[in-house]
Design a protein around this nucleic acid. Structure first.
Lengths: 225, 225
DNA sequence: TTTCCTTGTTCATATTCAGTTTAAAAACAG
DNA sequence: CTGTTTTTAAACTGAATATGAACAAGGAAA
């Protein structure tokens, strides 16, 4: 669901990272050097980058600087054996958001990842609770007062996406890019139809409402009790 | 200049923090307990909070949780002697952004502060605060003293544009080119009507006012308190 | 296989409301 | 006082959206 790029040359560490991220509910993407990382960044929607410093071809500092110079603001977490203050200094100056010294506590790494994602406004929950309504991403289900109901995939994803950033307005284009495929050719009216079905389904829900923002798109808002 | 609130009960540490922050070019505000911190937060525009955990009255965890539950997203850095993983865990769960164990390296603290401020600036570049009024570009909403209101697109854009350059005079032509399409053929009187609606809406706002500059156009000015 | 049902998409029509226009009243400058 | 600019209220209009229904593509069951 949230894609995290790991840039790390040591194969064992890479494997370990992969396992930790999976256990935290993230989707890892692996790169063995900085150049490969840049290529993968172009091809994927990456929500966070974990980068080692000592890397072949393009080291962690340079990779970070390159990205920041291009205006890329993806959160970066440096995880490295280089532990001197001079190393940290160079890391932060390059533009990293956080810096952990190996060997890292795996749990702490997950907390820090969660904090970074939260801050960069990317929600990272598998479940959303709004009043008496509970959305479960893993089951595609909505539970209201004990009643559990499974929604069609697109409908669920649409609702989940809207509710994970309440009040924020999403254009039809943005929603299509997120829920359908990037650059999907399908008619934007399709979004309307799905929204309409969601409204039907949750007409007297009482916890949230999907609001039309004319000329822009849709947003979900919590209902005042 | 960035204002940083330091919540710390030990007087010597507080003094030290103050000196370090000043040397880093920040404006420190000092609080000796959590309750005092909440009061100071109301009275000041605070860009970042450094919080100790063991505090009289309201501890660091509770302070953090309180703020986050109110929707406050000010970056928080916990600086504390509590070094177990369980402590860190509780800190991150409460909603802190970073966690440093005392005794901290002063330079590293400044780098981490800079990283947090950099990120929160990225997140907030779509917002304008004028007194108690907050404009959110992503939501097209204006919040005044807790009351959130959604504006029609053109109205919002017009207000946002005026307020992002306070005191600057914009001709109707300029505004049309920015908010309507470049070289739009629509009547310039349309701007007047929208301005008028904005004035209606924010008649007794107290934070800003839209002023007519006869023969030229309009400008937004902050009200003197 | 065929049938039936669920899901996703498209289309046609009805409806709505943001944005525009209009026009009269008010404010202003000379 | 006079001509010009701005304010204000109200009516209008069309593009944007809602909605119902039909269609297509797959999967499950018979």
């Amino acid at each position: 669901m949230f894609q995290i790029l790991v840039v790390e040359d040591d194969k064992n560490t890479r494997r370990l990272m992969e396992a930790v991220l999976l256990s935290g509910g993230y989707q890892p993407i692996l790169a063995e050097d900085g150049v490969r990382a840049l290529k993968l960044l172009e091809q994927n929607k990456v929500d966070l980058i974990i980068v080692d410093i000592m890397l072949p071809k393009l080291d962690g500092y340079e990779l970070t600087r390159t990205l920041r110079n291009c205006g890329d603001t993806t959160p970066i977490l440096m995880v490295t054996a280089k532990e001197t203050q001079a190393d940290k200094r160079e890391g932060f100056l390059a533009g990293t958001d956080d810096y952990m010294v190996k060997p890292v506590d795996e749990e702490e790494m997950l907390w820090r990842i969660a904090a970074l994602l939260r801050r960069s406004k990317i929600a990272n929950e598998h479940r959303i609770t709004i009043g008496k309504t509970l959305l479960d991403y893993d089951c595609l289900t909505v539970t209201q007062e004990g009643r559990q109901e499974e929604l069609p995939k697109k409908e669920f994803l649409l609702l989940f996406h809207l509710l994970s950033n309440p009040n924020r307005i999403f254009t039809r284009r943005q929603l299509m890019d997120e829920i359908w495929d990037m650059g999907s050719e399908t008619d934007e009216r399709t979004v309307d139809v799905h929204i309409n079905r969601l409204r039907d389904r949750f007409r007297d829900n009482g916890d949230f409402e999907i609001i039309t923002v004319r000329g822009l798109g849709y947003k979900a808002v919590r209902c005042s009790p």
